[in-house]
Amino acid sequence: MEQTFEKWHPYDNLDTMYDVNDIWMGPDGYNLILLPDGKHKEKLEGQRLMFTWESIVSYQLSGERYREDIWISDPEQAWSFWKSTDSAYLNTLRERSSLLPEGAVHWLFVGTNLVADVIAAQPPKVTVIAPSAGMPQAHRKEFEFQGCVEVPMELSEDQFLDRFLMFIEENRWSFGGGVRTIVDGCYINEDGTLGKPVWPEEDQ
C-alpha cells in the first residue's frame, strides 16, 4: 500500500477484508455495498456495509489481481478501507481540472475481488445492514402485494408493466408474478370484456 494512504474505520464491528458486492447510482446518490470476506467472515455472515455519497467527482473499478499497487506481502496486514488526500489518482485529477472541490479525498476500497476508487469532497454515509438479533439468517426476502395501483384509463397494462419493471430494475430488485387489469371493480378478460368482479361479496 502506498504511503500516501491511511487506514480508516467506517464502523466498529468490521472484518479485515471485504468483497465489493454491488455498485449503482440511486436517488440518494452513488452507492457501494461490501460483504465481509476476511478473518471474521463466518461471524459476520449476513452483514452488509453500504456507503453512499450524495455526489462524487470520479470513480473507477478494477480487478484486484491487476492492482499491484495495493498488494501486500503479509496477510496479517490485509485491510479494505483506506483514504488519501495526496494519491496519484487524486493528483492527476487536480492537474486536469481547476474545478476539483477543495478537500477532495480519495476513498479506496480494497476488495478480495474488485478494487473501488472514489474521489469525493465529503465522506460517505455508512449504513450497516445486518440480520436482526435473535432471528435466523435470512437468505431471501420478498414483499407480497395485497392491493391495487390506480392509474389513468389511457394507461395500458403493458405501459404500466414497462414503468413498474423499470423501477424494479433501477433498484437492482427482481419481480415475480403477474398483473391483472381491473376496471370498475371487475377483472378484464383477455378478449377485453368485463370478467368476474374482484369483490363478489359486494354484489350480493
Rank of each mutant, 00 (worst) to 15 (best):
A104V: 12
A104S: 15
A104Y: 04
V105S: 06
H106T: 05
H106G: 11
H106S: 10
W107H: 13
W107E: 07
W107I: 05
W107N: 08
L108D: 04
L108I: 01
L108V: 02
L108W: 02
L108T: 00
L108P: 13
F109M: 13
F109C: 12
F109P: 15
F109S: 11
F109V: 08
V110Y: 05
V110C: 14
V110T: 11
V110L: 10
V110N: 11
G111V: 04
G111T: 04
G111M: 09
G111R: 03
T112C: 14
T112G: 15
N113W: 05
N113I: 05
N113A: 04
N113S: 10
N113E: 09
L114N: 11
L114A: 06
L114Q: 12
L114C: 02
L114F: 13
V115L: 13
V115D: 07
V115E: 05
V115P: 14
A116M: 15
A116S: 12
A116H: 04
D117I: 00
D117H: 15
D117Q: 07
D117R: 00
V118C: 11
V118R: 01
V118M: 06
V118W: 07
V118A: 06
I119N: 09
I119T: 04
I119M: 12
I119W: 05
I119K: 05
A120T: 03
A120Y: 04
A120E: 06
A120C: 10
A121E: 15
A121P: 14
A121M: 08
A121L: 09
Q122L: 13
Q122H: 11
Q122A: 14
P123H: 01
P123C: 03
P124H: 00
P124I: 00
P124L: 00
K125A: 10
K125W: 00
K125Y: 02
V126F: 02
V126Q: 00
T127W: 01
T127Y: 02
T127G: 02
T127L: 12
T127E: 14
T127D: 14
V128L: 10
V128Q: 03
I129G: 10
I129K: 08
I129H: 11
A130T: 15
A130D: 13
A130R: 14
A130K: 15
P131A: 05
S132F: 10
S132L: 13
A133R: 07
A133C: 03
A133I: 08
G134M: 08
M135H: 08
M135Y: 06
M135W: 07
M135A: 12
M135D: 09
M135E: 13
P136K: 02
P136L: 07
P136M: 06
P136T: 02
P136V: 05
Q137R: 14
Q137C: 05
Q137P: 09
A138V: 12
A138P: 13
